[in-house]
Simulated scan of single mutants.
Amino acid sequence: MSKVLIRRITLIILTVITFNSCQKDGFYISKPVAENEAQADISTSSSPSGTTYNHYHGLYIDSTSSIMGDTVKENSLLRWCLSKRINTLSFYDLTQAMTPAKAGHLARFLKLAKTQYGIKENTAVVGSDAFISSYLDSFNRSKTDTLERFNTLNLEKEWWNGDGTFKNYVKILTKLKQWGRAQTPMVKTEEYIGWFVRPSGKELYMANELVKNSDRILVHVYQQALSFQYVLGRLSYLGQAAKSQGKIFPIVIIFSAEPGFSADYFRIYDFEDAYGIITSGYLNSDFPGKENIKLVGYQIFDYSYAKSVKPIMLW
């Protein structure tokens, strides 16, 4: 038997095994995902092996416009997501991806991701409320099929690094939430945050404003040697804010696959292992506000870096 034939047979066997495994684990969906399922905030599920996986496995997509409309790139992205149990995609580069030449491809991709690859949420990463009125509102409204729409907004504007003031940030966040609440079905609002600075000494004030004006918050753990201590302070402020508002607030942990952060770690360990370090620290610690936050999963920055350090292994 030739080496080429052996390789082909091996690839077919591995493909069947992967397909069956994904069906059993619930990450391949052969029928459209109902909109209420896409909006559900599910915490955990178990695989046949008994390993517990959190239901939020997110990924930032860089260079969205260069992927949409390129079937090879689209399929490569979706296959990678399936192999890594990704079920939430957050899209950068949407200004270019929503041009007339690309918008149709983007809408089709969102529906395909939801209905065939178990990706329940498709998130638009935005930096201003002007983007909503200029692009996203018309994009979503033009789609009678709600599966072709974005169902989450993510505000990424680093006030802590000097990109505007916190006061202005909250104004934008409030407008995003108001827009999302006015949509049918509702579009959730979340944000990525770094540090509670600018202004200093106002940590609880800032945490209260963020919790009040969003449905979920993403907090980064950008390290080489991952540790819960790195994120504990920020989680405590958010938890105390949630307690004051009578909420149990969902938190997503962001890891970076960039060189200088967790790239070397992810070449050896899985994303789930990194998340396990943080959840273990959470479970074994005691801090103000702990009972009012809920770690619901992790987000990876970003696709280009992640696929480089964790490629799909065929054999």
Results as ranks from 00 to 15, higher is better:
Lys3Gln: 14
Lys3Pro: 00
Val4Trp: 04
Tyr28Lys: 04
Glu35Leu: 07
Glu35Tyr: 08
Glu37Asn: 12
Pro48Gln: 04
Thr51Pro: 00
His55Cys: 03
His57Phe: 04
Leu59Cys: 09
Ser63Asn: 12
Ser63Ala: 08
Ser65Met: 03
Ser66Ile: 14
Met68Arg: 02
Glu74Val: 15
Cys81Asp: 06
Thr88Gln: 10
Phe91Lys: 06
Gln96Glu: 11
Gly104Glu: 05
Leu106Val: 14
Lys111Ala: 14
Lys114Ile: 11
Thr115Val: 01
Lys120Gln: 06
Lys120Asp: 04
Glu121Trp: 01
Asn122Gln: 13
Thr123Ala: 04
Thr123Gln: 07
Ser128Tyr: 01
Asp129Cys: 06
Phe131Met: 12
Leu136Met: 06
Asp137Gln: 09
Arg141Gln: 11
Leu153Met: 15
Glu158Tyr: 15
Glu158Met: 06
Trp159Val: 05
Thr165Gly: 03
Phe166Cys: 09
Asn168Ser: 15
Tyr169Ala: 05
Ile172Cys: 02
Ile172Leu: 01
Lys175Leu: 13
Gln178Thr: 11
Arg181Gly: 02
Met186Arg: 11
Thr189Ile: 08
Thr189Trp: 07
Gly201Pro: 09
Glu203Tyr: 02
Glu203Thr: 11
Leu210Asp: 01
Asn213Arg: 13
Tyr222Lys: 10
Tyr222Cys: 10
Leu226Ile: 15
Gln229Gly: 05
Gln229Lys: 12
Ser236Glu: 08
Ala242Trp: 00
Ser244Phe: 02
Phe249Pro: 06
Ile251Ser: 01
Val252Phe: 02
Phe255His: 04
Phe261Asp: 09
Phe266Pro: 09
Gly276Asp: 12
Ile277Ser: 01
Leu283Trp: 01
Leu283Gln: 14
Asp286His: 07
Phe287Arg: 09
Val296Trp: 00
Gly297Phe: 00
Phe301Gln: 09
Ser304Met: 05
Ser308Trp: 12
Pro311Ser: 04
Met313Phe: 05
